[in-house]
């Protein structure tokens, strides 16, 4: 059962921003993550500001430069089924299709998917953990089979999004509007790791709204894919995942990014893998070196060392597959 709150469904962005005058006022896009958090009392709420009445936040359109502009309210289903995205940015369509369940994809939005709260069961549960202002990360010595192996520091959540790694890999940016005016942020810099600030997951201020996601035109020779391993085949977050967006020149990797899900508190760009494959043909030797590199700096917790062979396996698998495209 949800706590009490007031509710407003503004018609314009300006009006919506005006309603975000307190950190207790919460944005409702699809609502799937918000309502779950409210049910668990993960945070408090005074007013819900629904974005569903704002038309300009919807739609997927091609930009003049040949990129893509995705309204923050575009649903995961729309992303997964968009012929434009499927053909030009398959990694994103695949990420969206692998998220949640059909019903949640019909409701959940791309903006919401980027802004969702961590899935740690201590954070979501009735535990006053570090991230919620307490003084203990329960996962550190507790049940941490599903926690991070990279980038953890005092807090060991993993970022739950399947679309965010794709967007980081593709070099996407987000547009943000708020009381202080609009700004543009690369998706890679949108997420805040615990090393920087334990109390937030993104750079979004409470009175700001993520309005659109911008994808650059696909570079020449772009191949992209997303691979996700999970305990069950639907309705589940990644145990380990890898988003590839690589530019090939002939058989050589000329550029691009490798981003992990299920690995770290933020979508984790694996610079280590990128360094190994850049300028190389994806032959067995390179792939094997890349697989080793992916967990080179990993620091597993007591129960999640399986993620090491798992990440090695999917990096190897996905690089082999993308080399053959």
């Amino acid at each position: 059962m949800l706590p009490n709150f007031s509710y407003v469904r503004p018609k314009s962005l300006d009006e919506a921003v005006r309603h975000l005058d307190s950190p207790e006022n919460r944005i409702h896009a699809g609502g799937t993550d918000l309502l779950g958090c409210l049910r668990e009392r993960v945070f408090g709420v005074a007013k819900i500001v629904s974005l569903s009445g704002i038309q300009e936040l919807k739609g997927i359109t091609e930009t003049a430069e040949g990129g893509l502009r995705i309204g923050a309210l575009a649903t995961l289903r729309e992303i997964a089924e968009s012929p434009l995205i499927r053909s030009k940015y398959p990694v994103l369509a695949q990420g969206a299709a692998e998220a949640a369940s059909p019903q949640l994809r019909n409701q959940g939005t791309l903006g919401g998917n980027l802004c969702q709260k961590p899935r740690c069961w201590y954070y979501r549960g009735d535990f006053h953990c570090l991230r919620k202002g307490g003084d203990l990360c329960y996962a550190m010595v507790g049940e941490n089979a599903f926690h991070c192996i990279l980038g953890g520091d005092a807090c060991y959540i993993v970022h739950p999004s399947d679309t965010a790694p794709a967007l980081v890999a593709l070099g996407a940016t987000v547009r943000i509007t708020g009381a202080g005016g609009p700004r543009t942020v690369p998706v890679e810099e949108f997420f805040v790791p615990p090393t920087q600030d334990l109390t937030r997951e993104t750079v979004l201020e409470h009175n700001e709204i993520l309005t659109e996601i911008l994808l650059p035109p696909p570079p020449q020779g772009l191949r992209s894919s997303y691979r996700k391993v999970r305990a069950r085949r639907s309705w589940d977050f990644a145990l380990a995942g890898v988003a590839l967006a690589l530019q090939f020149r002939g058989e050589e990797v000329a550029g691009g990014r490798v981003v992990l899900s299920g690995a770290a508190p933020i979508p984790w760009r694996s610079v280590e893998v990128e360094e190994v494959i850049l300028g190389k043909r994806l032959d067995a030797e390179t792939i094997s070196a890349a697989a080793e590199a992916v967990v080179k700096n990993a620091e597993p917790l007591a129960q999640n060392d399986y993620k090491l062979p798992l990440f090695r396996a999917i990096v190897e698998e996905e690089l082999s597959a993308i080399a053959k495209v």
Binding site: W121, G125, D126, Y138, V141, G142, E143, R232, R233, W235
Partner: peptide, 22 residues
């Protein structure tokens, strides 16, 4: 949460996973 609070952590159908259609 065996060693800390003794409370159940996966008390919902997301964290306690029933087989799905897939």
């Amino acid at each position: 949460d065996r060693d800390q609070t003794g409370r159940m952590l996966n008390r919902n159908w997301h964290d306690y996973k029933l087989p799905t259609a897939l």
